[in-house]
Every structure is written in C-alpha cells, then in structure tokens.
Simulated assay, not measured.
Amino acid sequence: MDQQTDVMVDGGHDQLARSVADQLVSTLAALQAQGRVPSVVLTGGTIADTVHREVAARAEDGRVDWSRVEFFWGDERFVAHDSDDRNERQARRALLDHLDVDESLVHAMPSDDGSLSLDEAAARYAEVVRDRAFDVVMLGVGPDGHVASLFPGKPTLDVDDRDTVAEPDSPKPPPARLSLTFAALNRGREVWFLVSGSSKSDAVARALSGDAVTTTPAAGVRGSEQTMWMLDEAAASALPADLR
C-alpha cells in the first residue's frame, strides 16, 4: 500500500475525544494556512458526539476559520429532518450550532420529507459529492465491522459505479439509510477511524488484520495518503502487540 496506516491508542473515551479534537483543529488550521478550504466528512455515534463537543470548545481559540470549512456526512438515517436519529441533528447540536459556519458549505444528506424516495435521495447526494476528494473522512466502526451504513453481507458493498447508495434494510434501526460507497470514502486524503469501547475491539482487530470486506466492511476503507485508527484502550484491547 502506498498510503500510511497509523494506530493511535489514547486512554479512555474522553481522552481519545480530546486528542481527536486537537488533531482535527491542527489539521484544518494547517490546510487553511495553505489557502485551502478544507473538506471534512462527519460521522455519528457516541465518540463522534464527544469529539464534536470537544472541537466546539476549541472554537474560540481562533485557529480555524470555521466559515471556510466544508462539511459532508458519510451516512445518514433517512428519517424526518428533526428526528433525533439524524446524524446531522447530532452534529448540529454538538458542533455546527456553536461555530460560525457558512451554511452553503454544509452539505447534509436528504431527510425523509415525503418529496424523495430513498433511491432518489441517494442519487441526489451522489451529485453533491461527485468526484470530491475529501481532506478528512471521519468514521466509526460497529461491533459487526460495519462502516458508515455499509453492513456485512449487504449488496451495497459491491457498488462501485456511484458515490452514494440506499440501504433500505439496515440491521440496526432505523432501517432506511443513505451511505457513501467505498468509492467515495476512499477518496479521502486522510481517513480517521474513531473507535471507543470494548464492544468494538474484535471488529477493530479484524479490520486491521485485513479481514474480508464482506464480513468486516471497515477493512475496505483507506485514505489515499493516510489512514489513522484512533482508539481508546478498550477498543484496542484485542489488537496483537505488533498492531498497537
């Protein structure tokens, strides 16, 4: 592999979130210093929520001009726009509502407002992210090894001709999901896996050991320049010594 893969193990859940937040702020500041408008793909889940709150707490230091950062999502629950199940709603409450963002640079996935079918919503977001090369893609990993809303054994794992897919029958509720495909996720220059908790440890070990994508979809996502596994001690507990 041409890209670099790094594993960072950092204490417990809260310490991991603080370290990820520091890394994100530093990365975005460096990109803006080059005259760039950085692009970030956000994720959902407990660790992401804590990271978002830690980033928001650093907003006043002025290192990042948040009006010059572009935001996307790796997956979304296809529910009403005001549902607490929405990753967007979680991210707004913890992060975006506390930043001076440019809403024209915030690209939420469609919600279920009755105007689009699930397939139509997937096609619409595919146009939004077409040919985009993201600077940072942040992802969680499920205990089953799923990443974004790409689940083990699902037909969506084989889609390579578009950037967004519809998942009508997620094994986790709510069942209707939208997800970036491997093709889109792998255009991230840096991919950051944010994983906390012992329930994820086996999946982390399988992914880092090169398990098949059909059983551990997280094994199929890599940054074009760098892949970073950012783990707390519990999530790293099943890793062999040579992978820590």
Rank of each mutant, 00 (worst) to 15 (best):
D2R: 15
Q3G: 12
Q4M: 11
Q4K: 15
Q4T: 14
Q4W: 13
V7I: 15
M8H: 15
G12A: 15
D14N: 14
L16T: 10
R18E: 08
S19F: 13
L24N: 02
S26Y: 08
L28M: 00
L28G: 04
A29T: 08
A30Q: 11
Q32L: 01
Q34V: 02
R36C: 01
P38H: 05
V40C: 01
V40F: 08
T43P: 01
G44N: 05
A48M: 05
D49S: 12
V51R: 10
H52G: 03
R53Y: 06
E54D: 03
E54P: 01
A56Y: 05
R58F: 03
E60Y: 10
E60P: 00
D61Y: 01
D61Q: 04
W66Q: 00
S67Y: 12
R68H: 06
R68Y: 02
F71Q: 05
G74A: 05
R77D: 00
S83W: 06
D84E: 07
N87L: 06
E88R: 12
Q90H: 10
D102K: 04
S104N: 09
S104Q: 12
L105N: 02
A108R: 11
M109Q: 08
P110N: 04
D112Q: 10
D113G: 10
G114Q: 07
S115E: 09
S115V: 13
A121V: 11
A123H: 08
Y125M: 04
A126D: 14
E127M: 10
V136Y: 04
V137C: 04
G140P: 05
G142F: 06
G142H: 08
G142Q: 06
V147E: 00
A148Q: 03
L150R: 08
F151C: 03
F151Y: 15
F151W: 13
G153W: 14
P155L: 09
L157P: 04
L157F: 14
V159K: 12
D160Q: 12
R162H: 10
D169T: 13
S170D: 03
K172G: 02
P173S: 11
P173L: 09
P174T: 14
A176F: 12
L180S: 07
F182S: 02
N186W: 12
R187C: 02
R189F: 11
E190S: 11
V191T: 10
L194M: 15
L194R: 15
V195F: 11
V195P: 00
G197T: 11
S198E: 14
S199C: 10
S201G: 00
S209N: 14
G210C: 07
G220D: 00
E225N: 05
Q226G: 05
T227F: 04
W229K: 06
L231P: 01
L231W: 08
E233I: 08
A235R: 06
A235D: 01
A235L: 07
A235P: 05
P240I: 11
D242Y: 13
R244I: 08
